[in-house]
Simulated scan of single mutants.
Amino acid sequence: MNFYHHPPAAAAKTLLAAEGLPTADLAAEHFAHFIACGPEDSPDAVVGLELYGDVALLRSLAVSPGARGKGYGGALVAEIEAYAQQLGVRELYLLTNSAEAFFSRRGYSSVERTNVPETIRQTAEFSSLCPASAVCMHKRIEAR
């Protein structure tokens, strides 16, 4: 599986939108911390980070319907975690409406929103784009 950083914004946003994930707050520069696999003009899967010092918001994990069941999601999460470690991130947070079991199997646990750092709570995804019913999850990682 070949991964590449900084996928073309338009192609990544197309996949995210098709999978029902928020894109309204994503400008081209946000994709500097995204990783994708598959063709650059039509990625099979993407995932991204929003960095805030030693904490980050893991966001926008999407796998196209034709690529599901091939391990792309798990491989991308492992890849983005390794990338986060290289950048000195120690804690990852995410919001999910439908993938709680997927992330639980990868070491993430549910956390109350009130226990999330203020920098993460103030992100557009956290404060307005994801519904209040979304599950908030956390994973502590060791910085390299």
Rank of each mutant, 00 (worst) to 15 (best):
N2G: 06
A9H: 10
A12W: 04
T14V: 11
T14R: 15
L15G: 05
L16D: 07
A18H: 10
E19G: 05
A24Q: 14
L26W: 01
A27W: 05
E29H: 08
E29V: 14
E29T: 09
E29W: 10
H30M: 13
H30K: 14
F31P: 01
A32E: 10
A32D: 09
H33S: 08
H33Q: 07
A36P: 03
E40Y: 13
D41V: 11
D41Y: 07
D41P: 02
D41C: 10
P43E: 03
D44M: 11
G48L: 13
G48Y: 07
D54I: 12
L57G: 04
L58M: 07
S60Q: 02
S60V: 00
L61H: 04
A62E: 05
A67I: 00
K70N: 13
Y72E: 15
Y72C: 11
G73D: 06
G74F: 02
L76K: 03
E79A: 14
I80M: 04
I80A: 09
E81F: 00
Y83D: 01
Y83A: 04
Q86W: 04
R90I: 10
L92I: 01
Y93F: 08
L94H: 00
L95K: 02
A99H: 10
E100K: 13
F102S: 15
F103R: 02
S104A: 12
S104V: 12
R105G: 12
R105M: 06
R106I: 14
S109E: 12
E112M: 11
E112T: 14
N115R: 13
P117G: 03
I120Y: 00
R121N: 09
R121D: 01
Q122R: 08
Q122D: 12
A124E: 15
A124K: 12
F126S: 11
S127I: 00
S127A: 06
S128M: 11
S128T: 15
S133M: 05
S133N: 05
A134V: 08
V135I: 14
C136G: 00
H138L: 12
I141E: 05
A143E: 09
